[in-house]
Amino acid sequence: MSARTNTATQVLFDAPGPKGRRRILVLSILSVLVILGVIALGLRQFAMNGELDPGKWVVYLRADYLAFLGKGLMGTLKATAMAAVVAFPLGLLLALGRLSRITPLSAAVACWIEFFRGIPMLLVVYAFLLALPAYGVNVPRFWMLVIPMIMVSSATTAEVFRAGINAVDKGQHEAAAAIGLTPRDSMLHVVLPQAVRLVLPSLILALVSLLKDSTLGYVVSFNELQFQGKTMVSITRYLVQTYVVVSVIYIAINFLLTRIALALDARMKARATGG
């Protein structure tokens, strides 16, 4: 596992030499300084305009405001969870379909995957919001958001699963055949469990993508966190403060999911190397 990862890295990227590493270090330091400078200028500008006035921030500690944002957070988590519950198994089925030896099935699945991987999810949301009602097809606002999330995520997740299946050592197929398993049983009982373990960190990172996709709920007026933040701006008139609070909530959730993915990835590598 580790050897394959190192080989892939060497193929995709040239290892930098001493000069290259020094150049990367200098550029990294300059980038950090520029970012800190931009943040400092932004804070200075906010302070000059009174945006850092404590009175404009403590209002977000009020119970009714917290409950209002909490309702949006629950909507975001509900949409993300529902999309993941459907999209991930669907992505696995699509991956198996694309790997199928039945040419029409493989071609049809490939078309689905490439189409929804290439199209922005916003266009799919607008199709459910504007196009389908013109033909008499109306769905609840929750599903106007979740179904496009499922369609797009299932396509990208299918490629994750396909990569995981292809990453399983070919010797596993041969060993399964040697003990009398059919190709179907070999895939179901030998290959898939290993492939799922391999792609588990990537699936958690896919949750991060789904979480960000849920912000398009404001397009269909679904009460997710972004939409609640927009509504709160109209109530408080505090644009900067509201979106900073909303951004911090998103960053906290994404950071937690990313840490879980990294911890799982480290655990997988440790198991693969006998650590």
Rank of each mutant, 00 (worst) to 15 (best):
A178C: 13
G136K: 10
A155I: 02
L145G: 08
N166D: 14
A252R: 11
S186G: 01
L211V: 05
G180T: 07
L130A: 11
R184P: 07
M187Q: 05
S186R: 04
F142A: 03
D169R: 08
H173K: 11
Q194R: 09
L203A: 15
L198V: 13
M151I: 08
S214N: 00
I251F: 11
F161V: 06
P193Q: 09
L200K: 09
V199R: 13
L205G: 10
L203E: 14
A261P: 02
I165H: 08
Y218K: 10
D185I: 07
A178D: 05
I150R: 07
V219F: 04
A178F: 01
F222I: 13
N138Y: 12
K212N: 14
A167H: 10
P148A: 01
G180P: 03
R141M: 01
L145N: 05
M268V: 09
P133E: 11
A206R: 02
Y135V: 12
M151E: 04
S234V: 08
Y218N: 11
G229F: 08
P133H: 11
F128E: 04
A158G: 10
Q194I: 02
A175N: 07
I147P: 03
N166A: 15
N254P: 00
T215P: 02
L200Y: 12
M149C: 12
M268S: 10
L198A: 13
I165G: 07
D265T: 14
G136T: 10
V220S: 09
Q226A: 15
V220Y: 08
L207F: 06
V246H: 10
Q228W: 02
A167Q: 08
